[in-house]
């Protein structure tokens, strides 16, 4: 059917729409980038001296802690923009324009792919800003070009997975308010990982959770790529988590979208 062949061009149209909407609602983007930057400054300048001393490595203190915490902060950027995605999907579903799209002969999934790719671009730009601020406050990665490419690839994959999940979260909620709360755990998860302190310093139950949740292997892989620490099988585990989350999010979102609207 002709609809299938147009999936790409319809998705491109929806992406253009989404990028315009993001550009015309800049306060949302500022808010979403602002949160990780505030966390970064808070952790580096307020807690950094003490936490850095507790890392038990070289006597780097604050300077050492910037390098340790930046991967976790970058993941918070992803979780934060994911919240924005859920809100914007929820808002969209309540508006008449999506009802109109449903009565048009277009590839159904294109409305969702527009959101996903738009948010992906938004998140990658946000992460670039956050990384820039980290460099300004003393982040000194040792990565070469290949490692940076790996970092970009892993971050894009992680973002892609989280965004599909938040598209589904944005649709499963009935109101925009609920949509803004539902992805909240995603913002908290990096704190319960190896992002801010080594998991060895946590009590047993929490340590067990921190070691097996998806953000820890992702952070460890990023840290390995950026700072040269050993990666081991964290890379494979990270990719497996991302593919799994993306698949679940995609299938769930597609199922929710093909329901009859209320």
């Amino acid at each position: 059917m002709s609809v299938r062949t147009y999936a790409l061009s319809d998705s491109a149209t929806m992406l253009r729409r989404q990028l315009r909407r993001i550009a015309r609602y800049p306060s949302m983007t500022v808010l979403l980038v602002g949160m990780p930057i505030i966390f970064l400054l808070l952790f580096v300048y307020v807690f950094g001296g003490t936490l850095g001393a507790g890392l038990g490595e070289m006597s780097g203190g604050r300077a050492e802690y910037v390098n340790y915490v930046t991967p976790g902060i970058i993941l918070i950027t992803i979780a934060s923009t994911a919240q924005g995605t859920a809100i914007s999907v929820a808002m969209d579903m309540t508006e008449g324009i999506v009802a109109r799209f449903r009565t048009m002969p277009i590839a159904r999934v294109s409305v969702l792919t527009g959101h996903v790719v738009g948010s992906l671009i938004q998140t990658i730009l946000s992460m670039a800003v956050v990384t820039g601020v980290a460099l300004l406050v003393g982040f000194r990665p040792t990565a070469g070009p290949i490692e940076w490419l790996g970092v970009l690839g892993l971050l894009a994959l992680t973002t892609f997975a989280i965004i599909w999940l938040s598209v589904a979260l944005g649709m499963v909620t009935k109101t925009v308010e609920a949509a803004s709360n539902l992805p909240m755990p995603l913002v908290l998860l990096p704190f319960l990982s190896s992002g801010f302190v080594p998991t060895e310093s946590m009590p047993t139950g929490l340590r067990w959770f921190a070691e097996y949740q998806p953000f820890t292997p992702i952070i460890e892989t990023l840290r390995g790529l950026l700072m040269g620490s050993p990666i081991g099988d964290d890379a494979i585990i990270s990719i497996a988590w991302c593919v799994g989350i993306a698949l679940v999010g995609y299938l769930w979102a597609r199922k929710l979208y093909s329901r009859d609207p209320a």
Partner: peptide, 11 residues
Amino acid sequence: TGQFSAVDNLL
């Protein structure tokens, strides 16, 4: 054309 405008307000 629906009862509630099916237009994109931000465009």
